[in-house]
Structure formats: structure tokens, C-alpha cells
């Protein structure tokens, strides 16, 4: 299990897709440092970001040099979902994004962990971490949705705004052999139940198709992503080869 997998193109492409998801969401969560509503959340979001960064490092290393991939690629070369690059917005947006993504990541990694492919060792480890992320997002969704009028309104707004990005999570990725339709069904079921318990309405808007978002895996990203990358990459690009 510890041998380096062959760098075949399908595995590389899949490692990039999953690695970019983890890296980009990690960076977004890191933007909360110094801005979170309470200290416990500051710590929680930073810890989730750290877990994702660890996963990204393993995945990107399967595809090439982790630093070059993270800091020297142009926007169009990133293969992450558009969902994870969405700006933090208010706390409700951050939680909705995390709820949608962690639920997806949990199901996907659980299936990868059960197989014997090149991602099984990482997935088996990461799925236990993601379980905590998913639970954190679920608890906050319940609190905010079933909380005050203000928190309910904001949580509903966040769920509505990000809903159109959720279909992309189940577009098959080359090199990942899982039952995508089954994953989507399980995801919808779980998410619907959480939203229902949180007294939130499941959005009616489309999750796939022309109007819905979703071409991140093809390298098409939303406008805020470029600015995020500029901030993430500028230090490395300004001081090539610098070290602590």
C-alpha cells in the first residue's frame, strides 16, 4: 500500500481534481482567521482548513510537485469544483458550503476507502476527519436554521445561493471509479434530512443543466477565484525559492 502509484494520466487527473478541491476550500476557510464570530469557531475553521490542507498535500504529491501545483498554476489549470472557490460570504454561506461539500466528500471518500485503488489509503484516513467536518457543519446548520428569524433567513439565503453549485459534485471524474449516481442519491437524501430538521426549505432551483453552475473540473472558474489565487500565490511567485 505504501508504494508510489504509477503516474498514469487518469490517476493524475483525479488526484488534481480532489487535491484542488481540498486546497482551495482550505484556503477559503483560512481567510476566516482573525475574522470568525467567536474564538471557538476561529479555531474550528482553521482546524478544518488544516485537515484539508493535509489531504491536498498528499493528493497533489500524487500528481506532481505540490508547491509548483499549488503556487505556479494559472487559474484555468485548476480542476476544483466551483462550489469550493465561492467566497466565504457571511458565516451562513461558509457553513452551507461546508455542509454541501463535506457531505459529498464523506460519501466519496468512504467509497474510495472501501476499494483498493490508489486513493484508498488517503481516503481511509481522511474520511474520519471529514466525519467531524460534516458533523460541525450539520450542527451549525441546525442551530442557524432553527434559530432566530435573522439566522434562519441568512441560512436559507446561503443554501439557496449555493444550491446551483451542488450538481457538479457528482459529475464523473476520470480515474475515480465509483457509483456517482448512487453517491448523488445518498447525498440528496442526507442533505434533505438535515435541511428539513433545520426548518429550512430545500431549494427548487436546478442543480445541473445550462443554468446551473459547474465546469470547474474543466478549468472554468467563477470570477472571485482569480482574486483568491492572486492572494494565495503572490508570496511564492514574488520570492521564488524562498524558505523559512
Amino acid at each position: 500500500m505504501t508504494t508510489t502509484p504509477a503516474k498514469d494520466t487518469a490517476v493524475t487527473a483525479a488526484a488534481l481534481a480532489l487535491g484542488d478541491d481540498a486546497l482551495v476550500l482550505s484556503h477559503r476557510l483560512g481567510e476566516w482567521a482573525g475574522n470568525a464570530p467567536v474564538l471557538e469557531e476561529e479555531v474550528a475553521l482553521a482546524n478544518i482548513a488544516l485537515d484539508l490542507l493535509g489531504q491536498a498535500r498528499v493528493l497533489l504529491s500524487m500528481a506532481g510537485d505540490e508547491d509548483e501545483l499549488a503556487f505556479l498554476r494559472e487559474e484555468r489549470a485548476f480542476r476544483n469544483l466551483q462550489l469550493v472557490e465561492q467566497p466565504n460570504g457571511d458565516f451562513a454561506h461558509t457553513i452551507a458550503r461546508q455542509l454541501f461539500f463535506s457531505a459529498h466528500q464523506y460519501l466519496l471518500y468512504a467509497e474510495l476507502a472501501a476499494g483498493d485503488g490508489p486513493f484508498a489509503p488517503l481516503a481511509a484516513k481522511a474520511v474520519k476527519e471529514v466525519d467531524y467536518h460534516r458533523d460541525h457543519a450539520r450542527q451549525w446548520t441546525l442551530r442557524l436554521g432553527d434559530g432566530t428569524e435573522e439566522s434562519h433567513t441568512r441560512m436559507q439565503r446561503a443554501v439557496d445561493a449555493l444550491w446551483r453549485h451542488t450538481g457538479e459534485m457528482f459529475q464523473p471524474v476520470e480515474g475515480i471509479d465509483v457509483d456517482w449516481t448512487g453517491l448523488e442519491t445518498a447525498w440528496l437524501e442526507w442533505t434533505t434530512e438535515v435541511l428539513r430538521r433545520a426548518t429550512l426549505t430545500v431549494p427548487e432551483g436546478p442543480r445541473t443543466g445550462a443554468w446551473a453552475a459547474g465546469a470547474g473540473r474543466q478549468g472554468l472558474h467563477t470570477e472571485p477565484f482569480g482574486r483568491m489565487l492572486a492572494e494565495m500565490q503572490h508570496l511564492h511567485r514574488s520570492h521564488p525559492g524562498a524558505s523559512w
Partner: peptide, 28 residues
């Protein structure tokens, strides 16, 4: 008190008897 504490591997809890906060090494 919080699912995450000073490091990812710990959660922050408080004792209801002696009122002291403490870290709990989370099950993984």
C-alpha cells in the same frame, strides 16, 4: 464547548462538576 481545540485532534469541553475547561483527545 467546541468540536475543535488547540489542535485538530482535540475538542474543548468543560466539567459541570468542577467547572474546569479541558481538552479531550477526540476519537478517530
Amino acid at each position: 464547548l467546541s468540536r475543535f481545540s488547540s489542535t485538530a485532534c482535540k475538542a474543548l469541553r468543560r466539567c459541570l462538576a468542577c467547572r474546569e475547561p479541558f481538552d479531550h483527545f477526540k476519537e478517530l
